[in-house]
């Protein structure tokens, strides 16, 4: 029965600094016995302990100072930084996981290969997330500790942030995140097919002779440049997430990226040796069409693709700049 009182006191004082434990223990014990009648029953004791409140709350009241890992003053900044840093960490670790997975030698079936790449990507992402959490929390804990030593009210008018200029330039977070996910998933599938399984894409003739579509010599360079393009796309997306709105510099980066990927595509599509040298010949044998006819059909298809890509690139660049110039004009 008295056991309850001892346990209650222990639950309070174990949360307090060692120097004050003994004294508070004695004081609390005296107070509790004062509140009890001569020969207390368990009910009496229980009631008194409930009156005193939970040991955790009582211990907090005995601690005069408020103590935080991250105090309410910094909590918003903490959450904000946590979001941005974890997005960046997750992205970086996902990309490194992907590249590792893609570069690993293929010894299994295509399906298993894809699954293992996805699994390693998610594992890396998870690790990145925890890393970000640990680092951001540590940094804010440090800021909190440093702040305890300086005056809390000091601030300068010059520290105030600039007002955001125009809402029209806002970049939707959700859209950007979707962009990143789709970009990554499709690019990775594309890169994988081109780097590991391109020898499966081609033409099986009636005589069961296989001719690949792609010229492996050119394809290697293309895949390499495509990875560079994917990485810059991811950089751009991360920047968009961080900035949250279009600035001239961001628009310049975005335009350069558009032009680069446009140039990349056009350059390789128009390379005469992009297609395997024997491919047209192989189709010609079965279909009865001449090699020249097939080649000219192929060229027409390429032309159509180039026209579509050109139009979309021009549209995307010009709408972006239109938006920015309009907003700047309004701002004046």
């Amino acid at each position: 029965m008295k056991d309850l009182i001892e346990r209650y006191i222990y639950a309070v004082v174990r949360r307090l600094p060692e120097a004050s434990q003994e004294e508070i223990k004695e004081e609390l014990k005296a107070n509790i016995y004062d509140m009890l009648p001569g020969n207390p029953t368990e009910e009496h004791i229980t009631k008194v302990l409930y009156d005193l409140g939970s040991p955790r709350d009582l211990a907090v009241k005995y601690q005069a100072k408020e103590r935080y890992l991250v105090s309410p003053r910094y909590y918003d900044d903490y959450i904000h930084s946590l979001k941005i840093v974890s997005m960046i960490f997750v992205l970086i670790s996902m990309v490194s996981g992907l590249i590792e997975g893609i570069l690993a030698p293929v010894e299994t079936e295509i399906f298993e290969h894809i699954v293992s790449i996805i699994a390693s990507t998610f594992a890396e992402a998870f690790q990145g997330l925890f890393g970000a959490f640990a680092i951001v929390t540590l940094v804010f804990w440090g800021i909190e500790q440093a702040q305890l030593k300086t005056s809390r009210c000091e601030w300068k008018v010059s520290d105030l942030p600039e007002l955001p200029k125009q809402n029209a330039l806002k970049i939707s977070r959700t859209e950007t995140i979707f962009e990143i996910v789709f970009e990554t998933v499709f690019s990775v599938i594309f890169i994988m097919i081109l780097s590991h399984y391109h020898t499966w894409i081609g033409y099986y003739s009636e005589a069961n002779v296989f001719t690949p579509f792609f010229n492996p010599d050119v394809l290697g360079t293309f895949v390499l440049l495509f990875i560079v393009s994917l990485l810059s796309a991811l950089c751009l997306s991360v920047l968009k997430l961080i900035k949250g709105r279009w600035s001239s510099n961001l628009a310049i980066f975005s335009t350069l990226y558009d032009l680069f990927s446009f140039g990349l595509l056009i350059f390789f599509l128009t390379q005469s040796n992009f297609v395997h040298p024997d491919f047209f010949q192989a189709i010609s044998l079965d279909s009865g069409l001449s090699v020249a006819e097939i080649a000219s059909g192929y060229e027409t298809a390429i032309r159509v693709i180039i026209i579509i890509v050109t139009i979309t690139t021009i549209l995307s660049i010009s709408t972006l700049w239109y938006k920015i110039i309009k907003a700047k004009h309004k701002g004046r």
């Binding site: 508070i24 004081e27 609390l28 005296a30 107070n31 004062d34 509140m35 009156d51 005193l52 409140g53 709350d57 009582l58 009241k61 005995y62 005069a64």
Partner: peptide, 28 residues
């Protein structure tokens, strides 16, 4: 006064304060 006698004094004056608030307050 000791903790509990103070609590009773206050109670007799209709000042309501919880024991769990008063004891840490005295220390502070």
């Amino acid at each position: 006064q000791y903790g509990y006698s103070l609590l009773q004094t206050l109670e007799s004056k209709n000042i309501l304060i919880e024991a769990g608030t008063l004891y840490p307050l005295l220390r502070r």
